[in-house]
Amino acid sequence: MTEYKLVVVGAGGVGKSALTIQLIQNHFVDEYDPTIEDSYRKQVVIDGETCLLDILDTAGQEEYSAMRDQYMRTGEGFLCVFAINNTKSFEDIHHYREQIKRVKDSEDVPMVLVGNKCDLPSRTVDTKQAQDLARSYGIPFIETSAKTRQGVDDAFYTLVREIRKHKEKMSKDGKKKKKKSKTKCVIM
């Protein structure tokens, strides 16, 4: 069974824990209790493949930012979460993405942009803004509501699919490099 290491990042209060708990335990946590770091595991079937999701729910508070490099190193894919009623959390996505790329030393890291709290009427981040940002990053965008469960499975499952595509691409690139290195030079 394939294991996928997913990391949920975003500013404090955007609903990272609520999304994760909704996926794992099928219930909505409405009281806000700032996370330092929590880890969850769940076995699911995605596109006919049974897999184990190892999900790291991270601290959004700035005082825990020193811990970010460590979990970013171990993560295979990242859910970059903002709240649709919090423009600052949307603007912060850029910083999370840049930090992930720096730590992973790669421009090509599996990510999904997630606009959470889409059940709320007080939207300050337009869907088109988020779609445009995701398009500019070359990553999928999904709106979710941890409260109603809308888009929750889709967000995590899409990230797994992005990781699969990335692994497939990397193995193809690896095979191309191996083929090239088999060419021999004969000096007579």
Rank of each mutant, 00 (worst) to 15 (best):
Q129G: 11
L133F: 10
V125K: 04
Y157R: 14
V152Y: 11
R135P: 03
T127E: 10
D153I: 14
I139V: 07
K167S: 07
D154K: 09
R135L: 11
R135C: 13
Q129R: 12
K169R: 12
F156P: 00
D126N: 08
G151V: 03
K172A: 10
V125R: 14
L133Q: 07
K177W: 02
A155G: 05
K167P: 01
F156N: 00
H166V: 06
S136A: 14
L159Q: 00
K178D: 11
Y157L: 08
D153Q: 14
V160M: 05
V152Q: 13
E168S: 06
A155Y: 00
V125C: 14
S136R: 08
L133W: 13
A130S: 06
K128D: 12
M188C: 06
D153L: 13
K176F: 09
Y157N: 12
Q131T: 07
D126C: 08
E162T: 03
D154C: 05
M188E: 15
D153G: 09
V186G: 15
A134L: 01
H166M: 14
V160Q: 02
I139C: 04
Y137L: 15
R135W: 03
T158V: 02
I139R: 01
S136Y: 04
L133K: 08
D173V: 02
V152I: 12
E162M: 09
D173A: 05
I142L: 10
V160F: 07
T158A: 13
K128W: 07
D126F: 06
E168D: 08
Y137G: 07
T158Q: 14
A155H: 01
K172V: 14
K176V: 03
A134D: 05
K178Y: 09
G174W: 00
Y157M: 12
T158I: 03
K169S: 12
Q129S: 08
D154W: 03
K167Y: 02
L159C: 02
K165G: 08
K128C: 11
V125A: 04
E162W: 01
S181C: 08
D154P: 03
D153R: 11
I139G: 02
V152G: 06
A155R: 00
R135D: 14
A130K: 02
V152L: 12
G138D: 04
E162N: 03
I139D: 04
T127S: 12
K167T: 04
T158W: 02
V152W: 15
D153E: 13
T127Y: 09
K167G: 07
K165D: 04
A134G: 05
A155V: 09
S145Y: 03
K184A: 01
A130M: 13
V186D: 15
K177S: 15
A134Q: 02
G151W: 13
D132M: 04
K177L: 15
D154E: 14
A130C: 11
S145E: 10
K178R: 07
R161T: 15
R164W: 03
L159F: 01
T127P: 08
R164P: 00
K182F: 01
Y157V: 14
T183F: 01
Q129C: 04
V186L: 09
H166T: 07
H166F: 12
K128G: 12
E168G: 06
Y157G: 14
D132Y: 02
D154Y: 05
H166C: 12
Y157P: 07
V160G: 01
L133I: 13
G138M: 02
S145K: 11
D153S: 12
R164V: 07
R164C: 02
D154S: 09
A134V: 02
G151H: 04
R164G: 13
S136T: 03
D153Y: 10
V186M: 11
D154M: 08
D153V: 14
S181L: 01
V160P: 00
K178L: 07
T127F: 08
K165N: 11
Q129T: 09
D132K: 09
R149V: 07
A155D: 00
D132W: 02
